[in-house]
Amino acid sequence: MSLNKDHGAFVHSRLPGSRPSRFVPYLLPGLIGIFAIVIVPIGWNVYLSFTRWRGVGPTRWIGGKNWRRLMSDKTFWVSFSHSLWIIVAIVVIPTILGLLISSALTDVIQKKFGPRTSSSLRALYYLPQVLPVAVATIIMGWIFRPEDGAVNDLLAKVGLSSLQQNWLGSAKTALPVLMIILIWIQLGYPIVIFMSGLQRVDPELYEAASLDGANWWQKFRVVTLPSIVPELLVVVLTSTIGALKTFAPVFLLTKGGPGTSTMVPSYYSYNQFFQIQQVGYGAAISTALTVVIIIFSIAFTAIQKHVEKHMD
């Protein structure tokens, strides 16, 4: 009887007549790869965070010393506070602008000026997204060049020479300018995702709202926003993770400076690994970043499930 029950609980493959174990050979190459290239390095990195190592010579186990140092390291906390600003630049602002732009493109431009106009505009907004981040960053750095860049030149041409700055070279403006650059790179992503979500919305809902005398803002709140909640959640989750990982723009434009005014966790750990050979400490920073990302993802996914259930 109990034997039967066990058999009942046994999971079958979806291919009749093939036992699940027969599929193991298909899985092995990929799984071995993921084990060797991802899982082992993660574990190793956690181990390194409990050691002192200069990259060569013996590795010394020092217990929680790196972690205690991390807790009282001003630069580490400053770097995470900058992550919050980067989240504003990569998540908050592009999501809000993306909502407005995508709904205007779908609701106004596509209907009144044709789908061609709306999809060409969408492509223009999306263009910076396809460039390699490193290249997009360098282009924007070039625009903000201190001596002869386009922004300073533009200011001079309109008689505002007094506003000229060493944009990325002074502690006051470096982070805001970095944020502007990140907004430019990011904006197309939410627009494209939201627009595809909006194609699902029944046009009659808009028509009905219009007949009820709803203005654009009311339609946006009542029709547009509720119908793209799933896309909204995906965008917020993926871009927040992206924001926490931001590396290339900081590395290429400011190296965390001037001082620590643009320091972020991922560049801080890179700096410890390769520039001052504090491998153990670099490992602690990157492990901390990993933990933050995982906690955020799990919490957010739980919220996402809850919201989706609620919507059904």
């Binding site: 993921i34 290239i37 991802v38 899982i39 390095p41 690994f273 990157s286 990993t290 995982i294």
Partner: peptide, 17 residues
């Protein structure tokens, strides 16, 4: 585990790799 592999920032793999 595969989901974990997708979340991990590359910095956490960098030095061991």
């Amino acid at each position: 585990f595969i989901m974990l592999a997708n979340m991990v920032p590359q910095e956490a793999l960098l030095y061991p790799l």
